[in-house]
Design a protein around this nucleic acid. Structure first.
Lengths: 387, 387
DNA sequence: CATCAGCACTCACTACAATGGAGTGCCAAC
DNA sequence: GTTGGCACTCCATTGTAGTGAGTGCTGATG
């Protein structure tokens, strides 16, 4: 913290006894800056490469051990063939630049969010799942059957198992899905159920209550009338319903049903969220209030869904610490991946873990499962459409 | 533990240097026994009443403070008008009888599961919700609308809010519900959706896949055939479907749909579980692995449902510690209440908290919400049936 | 004989030094 | 620029009292 301020400070006047340190800080910072804008001298790139290697080594080891990493632990890492003293000096520079932090003097370094960010960025899309996991994903989707909601829920369980993170799966909305069938089923003299089947296989229902007794025939007629204007349109874009003269009772039923359709339309617009493996959060943190606040967030579906969407919209695939807005999740990282069917995003996959989560694994798992899920959904929708 | 063995031991030979203690233990035990069988001397009942008062005071205070309770804290409790020395001797007796335990010598007492059990048993059904909470429940059910699943889910949230426990709501199965409507909606040339509406307002769907292309008319015909034998029966008790000669394609569709009906029948038999406020578990415990193991249990729907049913079947309304079978929940207590519609149990309400949970509140909340929920469900089903 | 004041005792909890060690920053030398 | 050496820092551990809440036991008492 203190060092960060030092580095950010304009080089006006050295503070206290830190003169020598200050004089070293400023050129260091300048070099980095020129490095970015101009053609860098080769010696500098070498330097930068080593620092990157050190940073990576620190992040990797910290992820593995959760212990602050000292210079001694890093000297044997690939790309670092220098003494611990040099590593120390580089680490100090990395700390000044905000990539590393020290819990206290005379302790090792731990990565900051910025450090994790660097680690993740240079990771690229290289990583892949090991064969056992890939096999697990494949058999899962081969055996996947039944209804989509159940499948999405099981997918969240699969992801949680693979990554040891809490997994979130946002299923497709039914917003743009056309109505295939509309039906009104009587349940009581004044009670009926509006049942709508959409082209994507979703079934939505809405109970209808009438002020007067309605017989089955009238319900049937009303359903036919509505079917005429709703089928093959989306729920929110249906045509006007003709009013039948002299049939006040029928018209009233139609009005009630139209209200029901509006409710369904609203419901179709909302996403469905499936969360799996929330117990993993209790394994990841040792502070029980962190667990509590994370669980509290997870209970708010709306928050989670919009969080995932926000991250995806900003083009990120990982949000670390405070990169998303939610403070309760400041010690968490979120890995997201889209689920696409024919180029169109229909869902989101999210993995929630501590900032020191296994990023390569999480990224690979999210990508692979997202792809497979998209493919699986595509198979379902391919056979429709041409009817 | 040791003391418990002592008390259970036949009075043969004093052990070690505990002679004086032993001689005191035995008449103490005998008196308790005669107390139960014969007409007790009045001085003894007084004694027992005081011990009960002390036990209650200890449990109450431990629930409130989570700190071991010393004899000094109990002397001012109602029903205890004796000195701390006498309280101490009573507490020692209560410990020998297994109602209290000491974390270590020279610490106060904490209740054992048996102690909680006594506390809960003598609590009776006296407790009730405070007016604010009662009002909250009432407005909740007044405003409750929409579909049953959503409502049950929100009920779990309400319960969690009221009691600060994790709430579980098991909804009614659709096993005994008659079919009101059956429909087959085509989604693709070889893909269709079987949609069944039950009398209780549940809608079930099952995708059907055919080996060959099937046109809409055939689907409609098949639906009519099936409707004839299924409507007004439960899903698992429908009559045989007539085979139409010379219509192999139709018959094949019917066969596939019958398979779908079997799946639906199985699904109708399974209960639906809604869990709310799982984050409360993280507030209740300070050991993070306890939280993890509890969350792991909560993720297993089947386990939770059968757990609740087991407790309800044994006639209990509270299961404390190890009274249910699950070791991971040994430090938890579970309060259950049935949800009944016209005398028939259609669901279960469960509250999960630490053994030192607020039993009066939890019991009252479970009972009240269970009643209200049953009433609410009854209103829905009353208007059906006579159609 | 149940009750109680008194007393010795136990033991977690806290505070406070002392020690060890992992790790750092700095510097002079290569 | 890199490195070995060195002084320094500070956490973590250990040991040692001291404190206090609480107990069990005992002998006195109505």
């Amino acid at each position: 913290m203190e060092c960060q301020q030092l580095a950010a400070m304009p080089s006006t006047f050295p503070v206290g006894g830190a003169l020598t340190r200050m004089t070293k800080t400023v050129p260091e910072k300048n070099r980095r800056d020129t490095n970015r804008s101009d053609a860098p001298p080769s010696s500098s790139t070498e330097m930068e490469a080593r620092k990157a290697a050190i940073l990576n080594a620190v992040v990797s080891e910290y992820i593995a051990t959760a212990q602050p990493v000292g210079s001694q632990h890093v000297v044997h890492a690939p790309g670092v063939s220098v003494s611990s003293a040099t590593v120390r000096s580089d680490m100090a520079a990395l700390e000044r630049d905000g990539f590393l932090a020290q819990p206290h003097t005379s302790a090792g370094r731990i990565p900051t969010d910025k450090g994790y960010r660097f680690f993740v960025d240079q990771l690229g899309g290289s990583a892949s799942l090991d064969t056992a996991s890939r096999q697990q994903v494949r058999t899962f989707f081969d055996r996947a059957h039944g209804e989509i909601e159940e499948m999405l829920n099981e997918t969240s369980g699969l992801l949680a198992n693979l990554t040891d993170c809490t997994a979130m799966v946002v299923g497709p909305t039914h917003e743009s899905s056309a109505v295939r069938s509309l039906q009104i089923v009587g349940l009581g003299p004044r009670l009926a159920l509006l049942v709508v089947v959409l082209a994507d296989g979703a079934v939505q229902k809405q109970s209808l209550e009438f002020a007067e007794d309605v017989d089955e025939a009238t319900l049937h007629e009303a359903a036919l009338l509505l079917s005429g204007v709703v089928v093959d349109h989306t729920l929110d874009q249906h045509g006007p319903v003709p009013t039948i003269k002299g049939r006040t009772s029928l018209n009233r039923v139609v009005q009630v049903a139209l209200g029901g359709l509006d409710s369904l339309s609203a419901a179709a617009r909302s996403d469905q969220l499936f969360v799996g493996g929330s117990s993993r959060m209790a394994t990841a943190f040792d502070a029980v209030d962190t667990v509590r606040s994370v669980l509290t967030i997870l209970e708010q579906q709306l928050v989670v869904v919009s969080l995932l969407r926000d991250i995806l919209d900003t083009g990120l695939s990982v949000a670390i610490g405070t990169e998303h807005g939610l403070e309760p999740l400041a010690s968490c990282a979120i890995v997201v991946a889209p689920v696409s069917v024919e180029g169109q995003e229909v869902g989101t996959i999210g993995l929630l873990g501590p900032t020191r989560m296994n990023y390569p694994l999480a990224l690979a798992a999210a990508r692979v499962v997202g792809d497979q899920l998209g493919q699986h959904l595509a198979e379902g929708s391919r056979s429709e459409g041409n009817r």
